[in-house]
Computed example of a mutant assay.
Amino acid sequence: MTDADYTRLPARKERLAIQKAEFNLPELPTTTIGSFPQSPAVRKNRAQLRRGEITRAQYDAFNNEETKRWIKFQEDIGLDVLVHGEFERNDMVEYFGEHLDGFRFTENGWVQSYGTRGVKPPIIWGDVSRREPITVKESVFAQSQTDHIMKGMLTGPVTILNWSFPREDISREISTKQIALALQDEVLDLERNGIKIIQIDEAALREKLPLRKQDWFSRYLDWAVPAFRLVASKVQPTTQIHTHMCYSEFGDIIQAIDDLDADVISFEASRADLTLLDVLKEHHFETHVGPGVYDIHSPRIPSEQEIVDVIHRILAKIPASHVWINPDCGLKTREEPETKASLINLVKAAKQVRKELEGHEN
């Protein structure tokens, strides 16, 4: 490994200009973080496959119909960058662990994630590698159903490591680099198959910071940040790399987050009353950003005007050319009616503010 393995070229500012011309997206482009509601029918389909009651072909056919249904909804309401909904995924770490060599799972080793939600963290027992593509089939199918840009969705290497039980005979740094190289193969396969925007989620980046602040870089961030860069360092300038972060206070590591060298980052922001915006402005944050404009952890449906007001607050701190409009993460935990109603209002709000911006320009 050399410095070149961790360096994406050209520099971000030049890449973003290339991507702007490539995608021709409107001001304040709209998207979601990745998942859509995992309805009882979706969960039943997965359980039936696990129990051997249906074939893999039947399981895939059901998920494909769900994907097509939600793609049509996204197109109908006017979202700019679409997602396939992740109906095949049980958990953002477990799903990838199941498809990578070097991971094992317990049957009932549940750990509380939040509220009443539990997860089964994988156990890393050996060297990690990718034996076959993980997300390519679903992403390519979804892209084939629409002329809109379809995001590829991955969980990042640091989050996979932090939400697993790691090996004790080698360092976390080495395990994370192995995961990163496996994910790099996945990113390049997505790119080769026509996926132009790829989101690499690092929800848990901050979680393993040492207790002593003076150890943050020397014992963690100095290898965690390069591990993320390793995943996406070889893609073309026309491929846009997104990431997403949640569950944490990010202000005190904001420079490290900018150093990830992603093109766009979405933050969970609404529950913190958008206080992160002041930190981004203070540090001259270069990565384009999508602060969550409404909280998905409540069934309450935000009105169009409420979201318009949030967007105005964002634009008071960040240039419109640097802003994406998206909800917070976790739509898989919500019901379908509230999800659809909220996203309809989100798109309407973004379009209203675009018109206001166009009026100011004229």
Rank of each mutant, 00 (worst) to 15 (best):
T2L: 15
R8V: 10
P10F: 02
A17V: 13
A17Q: 14
F23N: 01
L25R: 04
P26D: 05
P26T: 02
S35I: 03
P37K: 02
S39C: 07
R46T: 05
A47E: 15
Q48K: 12
Q48R: 11
R50N: 08
R51C: 07
R51I: 01
R51E: 14
G52R: 08
E53Q: 14
N64G: 10
R69M: 11
K72V: 13
Q74S: 08
D80A: 06
V81Q: 02
H84W: 12
H84A: 03
V93P: 00
V93T: 09
Y95K: 04
D101F: 13
F103Y: 14
F103C: 08
R104E: 15
R104Y: 14
F105D: 09
T106E: 15
E107W: 09
N108T: 15
G109F: 08
W110L: 12
Y114M: 05
G115P: 05
G118A: 14
V119N: 14
K120N: 14
I124D: 01
W125K: 14
D127N: 13
S129G: 11
R130V: 01
I134Y: 05
T135S: 10
K137I: 12
Q145V: 02
T146L: 01
M153D: 11
L161A: 11
F165H: 06
I170P: 02
I170S: 12
S171W: 06
E173R: 12
K177W: 13
Q178D: 01
I179G: 03
A180S: 11
E186R: 00
E191H: 08
E191Q: 14
I197R: 07
I198R: 00
I200K: 01
D201A: 10
A203V: 12
E207R: 10
P210W: 10
R212Q: 08
F217T: 11
S218Y: 02
D222R: 13
W223Y: 09
A224Q: 02
V225W: 03
V235T: 10
T238F: 14
T239G: 00
Q240M: 15
I241D: 02
H242R: 04
H242F: 15
C246G: 08
F250I: 04
Q255V: 03
S266M: 12
E268M: 02
S270E: 13
A272S: 15
T275M: 03
V279W: 07
H283P: 00
V289H: 09
V289P: 03
V293P: 00
P302R: 01
E304M: 13
E304C: 11
D309K: 10
I314G: 03
A316L: 06
I318W: 09
S321M: 08
P327Q: 06
L331A: 05
R334Y: 07
E335G: 12
E336R: 09
P337E: 10
E338K: 05
E338Q: 10
L343G: 01
L346M: 14
V347Q: 06
V347A: 07
A349G: 04
K351P: 08
V353K: 00
E356I: 02
E358R: 13
E361D: 14
